[in-house]
């Protein structure tokens, strides 16, 4: 009879392996196989989020950067520096997403932290605050 592993143990293992430099594809395949085998595919998003938390605790930060246009290298560097200042992480991995609906500015999603300076967000805030 298989013992049900807690999500914390799973994410801790995966994060540790990733931090140790194991092959990412192999780890992802193992995780996917485990979740399918244990019928816990619904926990996928939570597992991914927890892995990001674990990586952050180990000094590796995965940052999702959303903008309307492709970011220049200087801007990416500036964002990386900003994230390092706020998280004290040794390694920053940026994943850039292009979303024209944000109109302008940048949105940075970090584990447990978000910075949204997009024009779309500002307009949404304007709508929310001014509407009666």
């Amino acid at each position: 009879m298989a013992i049900r592993l807690s999500r914390r143990k799973i994410t801790s293992y995966i994060a540790g392996e990733l931090a140790a430099g194991k092959e990412t594809t192999l780890l992802i395949n193992q995780l996917a196989a485990f979740l399918i085998d244990s019928r816990r595919t619904k926990e996928l998003e939570l597992v991914v989020r927890d892995i990001e938390y674990e990586l952050k605790n180990q000094g590796i930060v995965l940052a999702r950067v959303t903008s309307a246009f492709d970011l220049a290298t200087a801007t990416q560097t500036a964002i990386t520096h900003l994230i390092k200042e706020h998280t004290n992480a040794q390694t920053i991995e940026l994943r850039q997403f292009i979303d024209p609906t944000v109109l302008g500015g940048v949105k940075i999603d970090l584990p447990g932290l978000q910075m949204d300076t997009t024009i779309g967000h500002r307009l949404t805030t304007l709508r929310t605050n001014l509407k009666k």
């Binding site: 309307a68 970011l71 220049a72 302008g104 500015g105 940048v106 024009i119 307009l123 709508r127």
Partner: peptide, 29 residues
């Protein structure tokens, strides 16, 4: 307010280019 926001979106969507976007991001950072 909705119309103003929509109009702003339309105008900003046409006005903002890569350069302006970089400036916006830089100022925000």
């Amino acid at each position: 307010i909705e119309l103003v926001a929509l109009a702003t979106e339309k105008v900003v969507g046409k006005v903002v280019n890569t350069k302006i976007d970089e400036t916006l991001i830089s100022d925000a950072l």
